[in-house]
Amino acid sequence: MVSKEEILEGLAKAVIDGDEVKSEELAKKSLELGIDPYEALMNGCNKGMAKVSDLYECKEMFVPEILLSADAMYAAIDILKPHLKVDASAKKPAKVIIGVAQGDIHDIGKNLVKMMLEVAGFILVDVGKDVPVDTFVKKAEEEDADLVTISALMTTSMLYMEPVIKQLKGKNHKAKVIVGGAPINSDFAKKIGADGYGKDAVEAVKVAKNLIGA
């Protein structure tokens, strides 16, 4: 008989190892054993992903490994999610619009930030890559977003971050804006009026949590 602790530890390990087959198997097993799916998610998958973040931060894990960890995590989530109990009294999670700046099609960094924000409990609305300024603003309004995160990998596309910020501020929208990507640094983020800067996916999550007071 497998214990609850073994299942949760196994889920965390499967995520760290990027073992999609194992994470699926253990997610199913956790349901069979009557483990609360929320607990399996938080103390299994998310615990594993938190370790992945740590390993990435200290350069012990890199993008290929994280992509596989994400696959393993999402495989478990797909199984657990339909069984999650909806708690109407729970605090509404913060909503984040995420996308790559206009003119830029490099979205691996954006996808890593998206995945880590999801793990941290945010609701993500992914507007994709090469996203026009107006789309970021429109989506933030439609979704009543708390945060807008924009990434850019090129010196040409980084110039399309400031107009998003200006338009949102001009409309007095509540959304805070976080920017990141290879050519961006904290000075540039300040200069264009961004509320936060994440030098990598792990830092982006910390900044996002700070900005919404989580």
Binding site: G103, D104, D130, T155, T156, S157, L159, Y160
Partner: peptide, 12 residues
């Protein structure tokens, strides 16, 4: 080819 706004080089 990079004809669009914000483009900097050919893209796939």
């Amino acid at each position: 080819f990079p004809y669009g706004e914000g483009h900097s080089a050919p893209y796939v």
